[in-house]
Structures are given as structure tokens and as C-alpha cells.
Amino acid sequence: MPIPTSIRRVAVALAATASIGLVVAPDASAAEWTSTIASWAKGNESHRWADESYSQLQFTGCFVQNGTQDVTVAYYRDVAVAVDPKYDSKTFTACFGSGTSNGEWTGLPSGDYYFKAMDVGGGGLLWVSKVYVDTTQAD
């Protein structure tokens, strides 16, 4: 039995609305998160997350292909319809051995943040087995 045209149109409209919601949903989340990095070059950006006042970034298990074993990242606040303010950069080197590189940013205004690769080993590609972001200074 064929489905009436009006029901098909409603189903298509609902499906389209649901998929648009997934595409434009904010990527921000609060508190802390863990991820990995694969094949990052200069200019690559992390996803966004909600933060206020303090943020800690840790890289563990780093490797740069075709470059020196260091990576410089900067924090940015994601501002709609404006230039994103940049906070200071940190250069990570300890994560290339058996250790963890750590960067902290304090005094941040509330908002959505991300980090960006400013330099990857002088032009290489970066892999990080564990990326950890913590937004609670209490621990």
C-alpha cells in the first residue's frame, strides 16, 4: 500500500530538521575531556568547549613525523562574528619522551575555547596518544 504524499513530506521535513540540528549543534562541553590527535599540521584546531577562568591542556605520547619533536599551541576564545582573541602560546616537548607536557591558562573570561597548532616540529605532522583538557583548577 503506497504511503500518502502528505505523510512522506512530513517525514522528509522531520528528518531534514533533525539532521540540521546535528550540524549546527554547538561542540562545546564543560569540565574536562580526553581525546587524541592524528596527523595535525600547523593551523589545525581542536573542538570547542565551555570554560571559565582556568584551563589546563596536557599532551601524552607525542610524535612528529618529518619534523623536530616539539609542538606549539595557543588558546583562543571562540567569539561569534568577531576575531577570536588569542591567549599565550605554549611549546610542548616533554610529551615526546615518556612524560606529559602541560600548559595552563588562567584569568580567562567565560566562553567557548579551543586550541590551535601554531607550529608542529618546524613543518611536520603531529600525533598525540592522549590529549586531556581540564577546566577545574581545584584538582
Rank of each mutant, 00 (worst) to 15 (best):
Q65I: 11
P4M: 10
P4F: 00
Y76G: 06
T93P: 04
S53Y: 06
A74E: 14
V81E: 14
D78Y: 13
I20T: 11
S98R: 04
N44F: 01
Y114W: 12
Q137I: 09
Q58P: 01
V24E: 02
S19C: 12
P2D: 08
P4Q: 02
T91N: 09
R9P: 00
P109H: 07
V128T: 07
A117G: 02
V79A: 04
L108A: 03
N102F: 03
Y113T: 06
Y75K: 06
L14N: 02
Y75Q: 13
S98H: 10
K116H: 00
A82G: 12
R77K: 15
V83C: 01
T17Q: 09
K86R: 13
T34M: 12
V23Y: 03
V71C: 05
K86C: 08
T135S: 12
P85D: 05
G107V: 00
A25M: 09
D134T: 03
G97W: 01
S55V: 10
L14A: 14
T136P: 01
D88G: 08
E52P: 01
A31N: 15
P85L: 10
R48Y: 13
S110F: 03
S101M: 04
I20A: 13
G103T: 03
A41K: 15
K116W: 10
A138Q: 12
M118L: 09
A18Q: 05
R77T: 01
A31W: 12
Y76F: 15
V64H: 04
Y54K: 08
G103E: 02
V24L: 11
D70T: 13
S19W: 08
R8K: 15
A31T: 15
A11Y: 05
A82E: 13
E52T: 14
A50R: 01
G111Y: 00
Q137W: 03
A28V: 09
L126E: 07
F59L: 08
V128C: 02
H47D: 15
D78N: 14
Y75A: 10
S110Q: 11
C62V: 02
I20N: 04
I37N: 06
S89V: 05
K42L: 12
C62D: 04
S101F: 01
D88H: 10
C62K: 05
K130R: 15
V128K: 04
N102C: 09
V12P: 06
W40G: 07
E52I: 12
S101D: 07
A38P: 00
S101Y: 06
A18I: 09
G124R: 06
N44V: 08
V120Q: 02
V81I: 00
D51N: 15
S29L: 14
T34P: 06
R9W: 12
D112N: 14
C62F: 09
Q65L: 08
V81C: 10
A74P: 01
A13W: 09
Y87W: 11
V71K: 09
Y54L: 02
I7D: 14
G99V: 01
W105L: 05
K90P: 02
F59G: 05
P26T: 14
A41W: 05
S35W: 10
A138C: 05
G124H: 04
A13C: 06
Y54H: 06
Y87H: 09
T68M: 11
A16G: 12
D119R: 04
L125I: 03
M118F: 08
G21I: 03
G103R: 04
T36Y: 08
K130C: 10
S39E: 13
